[in-house]
Design a protein around this nucleic acid. Sequence first.
DNA 1: CTTGATGCAAAGGATTTGCACAAAT
DNA 2: ATTTGTGCAAATCCTTTGCATCAAG
Lengths: 153, 153
Amino acid sequence: MGEINYRNYIEEKLRCGGYKLTTQRLNMIKVIYKNNRHMSADEIYSEVKDKKIGLTTVYRNLMIFEEIGVVRKISITNINYYELDIMNEYKVHIHTKCSKCNKIMDVNEVEVTEEYLSLIKNLKKKFKIAVESISVVVAESCENCNLKLEVRR
Amino acid sequence: MGEINYRNYIEEKLRCGGYKLTTQRLNMIKVIYKNNRHMSADEIYSEVKDKKIGLTTVYRNLMIFEEIGVVRKISITNINYYELDIMNEYKVHIHTKCSKCNKIMDVNEVEVTEEYLSLIKNLKKKFKIAVESISVVVAESCENCNLKLEVRR
DNA sequence: CTTGATGCAAAGGATTTGCACAAAT
DNA sequence: ATTTGTGCAAATCCTTTGCATCAAG
């Protein structure tokens, strides 16, 4: 979805939920869109606070965004991270977090997703559960940190 | 591992890390062993507090247990849950949490695990990451809550 | 006007830390 | 005696709530 269109998309989503598109809300979306990664409430706040907004509002709007399906929340080591739920069709979501540099990476590659979907299908079948959302967190050492490790030796 | 043997196992693990097996630590292990499920620090505390132990100690010992590989920690919606890491060979770990009754379920079935392992293998290959531990959380409506839902209709 | 949105300050819950005391060898 | 463990209280971090004010139709 292009930068021109997502504004309308967000506005529509908000309207459906009975909410309005305010300047603060748009600025928050812009920041998450621009960064294109998982951001904590605090990270988002630090990039919008020049534009007249309080941390409370950031939290409150993130809750609304999640409710209307505009952002997705994942909880990693007791911190909530948010990402835009606009661009991807996949409900599947795999995150990896490097235990050294704390970088969070999105895994949305089709090949992996295929296997993932089949895993979920079997989960549903075997345990008769209605899967609503999925979050996989893989603690790992990322390529970058592994390289550094090798250099150090 | 039998109930008779795990005491020695824990004591050995603690010794390796430079720690001692105290009454409080043994009581905590007993509670997690007995319940055989994911427990929050507070849940563990509420079952051992009669036996002269403070919440601080519970937290501190859980940290130690995690460090020496006796418990595994998973973070779900900002609460940490702990489970014994003694009985299972699998490093693979899939948890499902019912969004209605909050019950956490362990998924360790071999069939699912097979697929899961192949997923991880591909993750490693594709992204050159060193997977250290994995936590999958599936938000779902569990069989029990679904049944209730049907009855209500 | 009326309804929703905001922001400050204050409260809340989970976890950690400081420090003095207790336990164990 | 020296080291390790404990527990209370206080501090901390992230998040939510209360309430008065602001903005928009």
